[in-house]
């Protein structure tokens, strides 16, 4: 058995631009993702983030290089249809626009769509639908019509639809980009719960640095190349690199940066808002004790 759930070797992928020319979308990507990890992928528009996501569940095929899912070579070219379906079951995807990924007109039917396609027996589908709704905190909405729900709720329904297939990994392709702050918080909390308690591997493609900060590792893509693969603490300790990439840094890191520039000596390497608040509190207490 492979130690890594997802492993890529020298992965390259091309796309056809509007003039019909082949252009590289991804160049020589080497990735290793363990089971249960929480990965954020950041990069500007057109950096290849979505292409990478679609390669990992075989919606797209690579031009060259290898992809191993749970130790199995996905690029050998002789996979059966059932094996491809199994990969799509194990690596679920949630997309940006909730309206364009909900298939049915009733919430429970939409969540059942995946298991129905997999040919799961009816009583088991019912169990999975109930379980998935419970997990995303949408119990009681079984018979609702999706178009009457809020953006955050629709996106949680989409997550539930993936969960009902019992995946081992969920890829979120800018799943929070169209949501208001409240909807975003709903989705992030749900995803973190799944990662923490169900040990589901999460790959979160995002524009929001405040979301990337919470991951175990952050991957930076630029023009199809993998530039960084660091824990957030390490990545955000070089804010200039991120600004050069047009990515910016989380507000909390920005604040710490600015305070230090003003000559306020904060301890440690705070990254998340909570850590940041803690560091400032500590500084203020020390200052108070010192002054008093």
């Amino acid at each position: 058995m492979d130690e890594y759930f997802i492993r890529t070797e020298h992965l390259c992928c091309n796309y056809r631009d509007e003039n019909g020319r082949e252009a590289p979308a991804l160049i020589d990507i080497n990735l290793k993702i363990k089971k249960g990890e929480y990965i954020a992928v950041i990069g500007r528009n057109g950096s290849g983030k979505s292409t990478l996501a679609k390669l990992l569940n075989m919606i797209l095929l690579p031009a060259s290089g290898k992809i191993y899912i749970d130790g199995k070579d996905m690029t050998s070219g002789n996979l059966s249809d059932d094996e491809i379906l199994d990969i799509r079951r194990r690596v679920g995807m949630v997309f940006q626009n909730p309206d364009n990924q909900i298939v049915a007109t009733i919430v429970e039917e939409d969540i059942a769509f995946g298991p129905e396609n997999l040919g799961i027996p009816t009583p088991e589908i019912r169990r999975r639908v109930d379980y998935a709704l419970e997990t995303v905190g949408m119990r009681g909405y079984e018979k609702h019509e999706p178009h009457r729900l809020s953006g955050g709720q629709k996106q949680r329904i989409a997550i539930a639809g993936v969960l009902a297939m019992q995946p081992e990994c969920i890829i979120l392709d800018e799943a929070t980009a169209m949501l208001d702050p409240r909807g975003r918080a709903e989705v992030i909390n749900t995803i973190e719960l799944l990662n923490r308690e169900r040990k589901i591997t999460v790959i979160m493609i995002t524009h929001h640095m405040n979301e990337a900060v919470r991951a175990d590792r952050v991957i930076v893509l630029s023009d199809g190349r993998l530039l960084r693969d660091y824990p957030p603490r390490q990545l955000f300790s070089e804010p200039d690199f991120l600004r050069r990439q047009g990515l910016g840094v989380p507000q909390s890191v920005e604040l710490i940066d600015e305070l230090r520039r003003q000559g306020i000596a904060l301890e440690g390497e705070p990254v998340t808002p909570e850590e940041c608040a803690g560091a400032i509190m500590k500084y203020l207490k020390q200052k108070k004790a010192h002054d008093g």
Binding site: K54, N57, I59, L85, R88, R89, G92, M93, F95, N97, N100, Q101, V103, F113, G114, N117, L118, G161, V162, M165
Partner: peptide, 11 residues
């Protein structure tokens, strides 16, 4: 997009 999403859900 819907077609891709349906494929991702094993349709």
């Amino acid at each position: 997009e819907l077609a891709t999403a349906m494929e991702c859900r094993c349709y």
